[in-house]
């Protein structure tokens, strides 16, 4: 019986024809024979996204403990933790972090405000679009980094230049996605609004703004990432404080551990701010989740 199973399986798989004599007889191999081969990636692994990073961390630990990794090249994880603890207790990290977070926040606020304002102007009127959309699209194709020399000349090396650079990076994704959100609102809703005689203000408040919110929040996720990116750049080009400056300084003294603390910090800040936007997204768009679930 056991020897027969593979042959049976093969037969059923190929022809899918049961032998007449077999009908009704319980066959232990039937369940397996009937199972189709799955072509998809299979069921998701719980917390699977953590496996890769943890594996890397494990290799780092093991490599450092075994002396395979040169500490000048990449210090051991515990050295990094120790350096971080020292930087925190001395207050240096806190001060630099505060400065960086401030630049990030101010740049983000200005960039979002400008991006939304421009998107509204260009999304709600054809003339507005004719005036605004072109310049923004042109700006979009120029990398922020390439603008830096000009911004340095125009605004000097002080705080203003840094905030403007960050805000310019934020403005683009906010504009693009909010404008797209505005324009992809179904025109049937405009028709409906006419039949219920909705006023202009109510139309914007009830239909346009909530309808564009998904686009805006998507733009927000890109904007947050862009703001951190710009921050790294401006803090390394010319600064006397901030995380970027801390890393820059560490670089010239060969303090690899401080550089890595800075990198980890940037990573964490990026993850946290993206997480916050995602939470806001989930709350504000709960109506949409009901459609997508």
């Amino acid at each position: 019986m056991t020897a027969l199973k593979p042959a049976e399986t093969e037969h059923r798989g190929a022809g899918a024809e049961a032998e007449p004599g077999d009908v009704g007889r319980p066959r232990p191999a039937e369940g397996r024979a009937r199972a189709r081969r799955r072509l998809g990636p299979g069921t998701p692994i719980p917390a699977g996204f953590l496996i890769g990073p943890l594996l890397l961390l494990g290799i780092w630990f093991l490599g450092s403990a075994q002396g395979w990794i040169d500490p000048r090249f990449l210090p051991a994880p515990w050295t990094i933790a120790q350096t971080a603890a020292e930087l925190i207790s001395s207050g240096r990290l806190g001060a630099d972090l505060l400065v960086s977070a401030q630049r990030f926040a101010i740049g983000l606020v200005f960039g979002v405000a400008a991006g939304v304002a421009l998107a509204l102007v260009s999304g709600l009127s054809r003339i507005g679009e004719a005036i605004v959309d072109g310049p923004v699209q042109i700006k979009r194709s120029i990398p922020n980094l390439a603008l830096l020399p000009l911004l340095l000349l125009w605004f000097g090396i002080d705080e203003r230049m840094k905030i403007i650079t960050i805000a310019l990076g934020v403005l683009i994704p906010i504009y693009i996605h909010t404008h797209n959100g505005l324009r992809s609102i179904d025109s049937r809703y405009a028709e409906l609004s006419e039949t219920v005689r909705l006023g202009h203000g109510a139309f914007i408040g009830r239909v346009i703004l909530p309808g564009a919110l998904p686009g805006f929040l998507l733009g927000m996720r890109f904007a947050v990432t862009s703001a951190w990116l710009s921050l790294v750049v401006v803090e390394q080009v010319n600064a006397t404080n901030g995380i970027g400056y801390m890393m820059q300084l560490a670089g010239s003294y060969g303090q690899t551990d401080v550089i890595i603390v800075g990198l980890v910090l940037y990573g964490l800040l990026g993850l946290i701010s993206d997480g916050i936007v995602r939470i806001v997204q989930r709350r504000a768009l709960s109506w949409r989740r009901t459609l997508e679930d």
Binding site: R188, V196, P210
Partner: peptide
């Protein structure tokens, strides 16, 4: 033609 981002009652009284 209900606005998906407004709750049912808000949809009913839209423009009222």
């Amino acid at each position: 033609r209900l606005l998906p981002w407004q709750r049912v009652l808000t949809n009913v009284v839209l423009g009222l």
